[in-house]
């Protein structure tokens, strides 16, 4: 078995330690981005939902500013964002290379995306249910936590999976420009040194991560749908 593997993937075997480390780096970037962008995106998404005219905390100006901001950030291609953000990253974490530095553009790239996804998930909540909650005297905060987030949970999980998968994709891109992780390995070793087996296995590991996120996410999304 090992012999066959070594035969088909000669370069991979030689740098198996690097593979383990890169995998951890990718996981680190994904998890850190997921937490930070998750919080920011969730907050923005909820804010977008409730401040939209006609909703429970309607604030036309706030909504339109948030809306435009989210659109703006979503319009910047990630590869350009990576470059543009460098001075800011340096200011924030002291360096612009490495996994921790990569988290800055990753968050900026994915939080607005997640915010929009959350908004899309929450507008699915039947306005009639919101009205029913208002009619029994619920406050806006109660409606957010006990109605929107509860009724929208299954949909929130679904869009979180979509976002997480897109973050995995973005980490590979960030990795390619000095962020570390599997993307870095695939490009700097696999591509640049013509070691196709390294690129291939990097891809397989990334696909595996996507697959796990998808399966686990689907399971919980289904479990919370009634």
């Amino acid at each position: 078995m090992v012999a066959i593997f070594a035969h088909y993937f000669p370069n991979v075997v030689g740098i198996s330690d690097e593979f383990v480390q890169s995998t951890w780096e990718t996981i680190y970037m994904v998890v850190a981005t997921a937490i930070i962008a998750g919080i920011i995106g969730m907050f923005l998404g909820v804010a977008l939902t409730v401040t939209e005219p006609g909703h429970i905390l309607a604030q036309r100006t706030v909504y339109s500013v948030l809306d435009k901001l989210v659109n703006l950030f979503r319009s910047i291609p990630f590869i350009i964002l990576l470059a543009v953000i460098v001075p800011f990253t340096r200011l924030l974490v002291g360096t612009s290379i490495g996994t921790t530095a990569a988290i800055v553009p990753l968050v900026l790239g994915s939080a607005p995306f997640y915010a929009r996804q959350i908004q899309n998930a929450l507008v699915e909540v039947d306005p009639g249910i919101i009205e029913a909650a208002e009619s029994v005297g619920s406050s806006p905060l109660e409606i957010i936590f006990r109605v929107y987030l509860k009724e929208g949970l299954s949909e929130i999980i679904r869009v979180s999976v979509v976002t997480l998968i897109s973050v995995i994709g973005l980490t590979a891109m960030a990795g390619a420009v000095g962020g570390g992780g599997l993307g870095n390995l695939a490009i700097s070793v696999g591509y640049n040194r013509f070691q196709n087996d390294v690129t291939f296995i990097s891809m397989i590991i990334i696909l595996l991560m996507v697959f796990i996120v998808q399966v686990v996410g689907d399971f919980f999304a289904r479990k919370t749908a009634h």
Binding site: D126, G128, I129, E131, A132, E151, S154, T224, H226
Partner: peptide, 15 residues
């Protein structure tokens, strides 16, 4: 809270 309301489409919380 002292004014109950019911609706055509029931508006129950599905979750």
């Amino acid at each position: 809270k002292k004014i109950g309301m019911i609706f055509q489409h029931f508006n129950l919380m599905n979750a």
